[in-house]
């Protein structure tokens, strides 16, 4: 039995998961980029330093590759390991094809709605007139990247009018601002670990961008039906691990803003004490994933 961590050894999620696996008595193997010497889909993954992982014995794999591959061997290894991640019956957090859903936020919103969550009204456009009409309709709107490229969510203000003509260059995403309390909900297999985030920032991840706003986090237990909707959403997306961004408005309505398919959960764990890494390690070792 072995656990494979596809990512940089020093990356915080990979590092914490490796230590959690070790605590549970399993030596997880971490490798990334040029370290992948060769991959035989029915046999062994060989790492440049000589370590071997017998792929049929792998119970779970965490996928967070970020290393550049330039050599022919590493490129072939990357492609083969990607294919293995799609085809294996081991637990994969997450299969690359499923994780790709958040490469397009509006595409993912369609799946979020299909799973029964409310989602903010969203416009992607190259027309300044469309933006003005949408702004007038909702009074307060935010803009953010369309793709999975990380961006700081910001409200559109009068100072932005001067650059709204720039949207003709590239489709730009605007979204109804949802006034409510942020929640981050991590789903790990069937386990749901949530926290409430009280922040005066528009984007709680970047309080400095909101003029030194404050952010605090506390672990919470969601209502059973909300928890189940989160599990259903993750299942619908073909995922086994996800960080779901929710907002609870003053009318008690739960809104889903986005699903992070490669969540950097260490930050939330550090602030709340939620045992997310432990749940991830146990899932990788026990191989008890939901059927995707």
């Amino acid at each position: 039995m072995s656990v494979l961590l596809w990512g940089r050894v020093a990356e915080p999620v990979i590092d914490a998961t490796a230590r959690a696996c070790a605590h549970l008595g399993i030596d997880a193997v971490a490798a990334d980029g040029e370290e992948l010497a060769s991959v035989d889909l029915g046999g062994d993954l060989i790492i440049r330093d000589g370590r071997r992982v017998h792929l049929p014995s792998v119970t779970g794999m965490l996928v967070r590759p970020e290393g550049h591959v330039t050599s022919a061997a590493a490129i072939a290894g990357y492609q083969a390991l990607s294919a293995w991640a799609e085809l294996t019956s081991a637990v994969v957090l997450n299969r690359p094809s499923a994780a790709a859903s958040n490469r397009s936020k509006p595409y993912q919103l369609g799946q979020i709605r299909a799973a029964g969550f409310a989602a903010p009204d969203t416009l992607v456009t190259t027309s300044p007139d469309d933006v003005y009409a949408f702004w007038a309709e909702h009074q307060m709107i935010v803009y953010k990247s369309v793709s999975g490229v990380r961006s700081i969510v910001a409200t559109l203000g009068p100072q932005d009018k001067l650059r709204l003509d720039d949207v003709v260059t590239c489709p730009t995403q605007f979204q109804q601002y949802i006034d409510g309390i942020d929640h981050r909900d991590h789903v790990i297999g069937d386990t749901v670990l949530a926290c409430r985030i009280d922040s005066t920032a528009v984007d709680y991840r970047y309080p400095a961008a909101s003029g030194g706003a404050t952010t605090t986090m506390n672990a919470v237990i969601l209502r059973d039906d909300v928890e189940q909707r989160c599990r259903d959403l993750v299942h619908t997306l073909g995922l086994t691990l996800a960080g779901i961004d929710l907002k609870l408005d003053r009318h008690g309505q739960w809104w889903c803003l986005e699903v992070n398919t490669a969540p950097g959960f260490i930050w939330f764990e550090a602030h709340t004490g939620l045992p997310i890494t432990d749940a991830v390690a146990k899932l990788l070792i026990n191989g008890a994933a939901i059927d995707t």
Partner: peptide, 28 residues
């Protein structure tokens, strides 16, 4: 960056259109 934004837009735009699309895009 613009290439990623345009790809992301097209993925959603093609997925939502009511007309026949051969073949509908996938996330990859």
């Amino acid at each position: 960056y613009v290439a990623q934004e345009m790809s992301a837009f097209l993925l959603a735009w093609l997925s939502e259109l009511a007309c026949p699309v051969i073949d509908r895009p996938t996330a990859v």
